[in-house]
């Protein structure tokens, strides 16, 4: 778990480090791909959560993640089409996908309360990493005003998800104690 958290944080924060030669950060097409991948990774984890979660509130949270991140992705894809921006893979988007696949592989091995705890722990870390990436890398580097606005508009949803996940994490901790 700790390793996968580090992998995600590193992937997102390295977004700045994977910049093209002129070197100020990811380009708009790269940002578009990072956003779509970040949402898709959480949708995939949420789908697994919908089917495997043990506690009712964890299952409901997973359903909410699928619903909200699907909605955010629709806006992102619609905007990319409108702006004629073709999302472009970067090391960041590839690392995100890889980190997401590793998380899924880890979660698939777990059952019941153990699954719930691992899923929710990862959701807390993941949403925190995405918020940090939005603030430090994605929003500051977005050139197109509409893309920047979309990133800013998506931020409160990630914050609400983080708070929700932390709340569930605390209640799962109490049950265990």
């Amino acid at each position: 778990m700790t390793l996968s958290k580090i992998a995600i944080a590193a992937a997102l924060l390295f977004a700045a480090g994977t910049a093209p030669a002129q070197g100020t950060g990811p380009t708009d097409p790269q940002i578009a791909a990072i956003v779509v991948t970040a949402n898709q990774v959480d949708i995939d984890a949420g789908r697994l959560g919908e089917s495997k979660a043990h506690a009712k509130d964890v299952k409901a949270f997973a359903e909410q993640m699928v619903k909200d991140h699907t909605a955010v992705n629709k806006s992102a894809v619609d905007l990319a089409q409108k702006l004629k921006v073709t999302p472009e893979e970067s090391d960041t988007s590839k690392s995100l996908k890889k980190g997401g696949d590793e998380n899924l592989a880890n979660l698939k091995k777990l059952q019941g309360a153990e699954f719930d705890r691992a899923y929710v722990d990862h959701e807390v870390a993941y949403h925190q990493a995405v918020i940090d990436a939005l603030d430090k890398t994605l929003i500051p580097n977005a050139k197109n005003a509409e893309l920047k606005a979309l990133l800013e508009k998506s931020r409160p949803a990630f914050v609400a998800h983080l708070e929700h996940a932390k709340h569930i994490q605390a209640s799962l901790g109490k049950k265990a104690g």
Binding site: S75, K153, A157
Partner: peptide, 10 residues
């Protein structure tokens, strides 16, 4: 009273 959803999510 009209609630207008201007967010990205339902």
């Amino acid at each position: 009273v009209v609630w207008r959803n201007q967010d990205l999510v339902p």
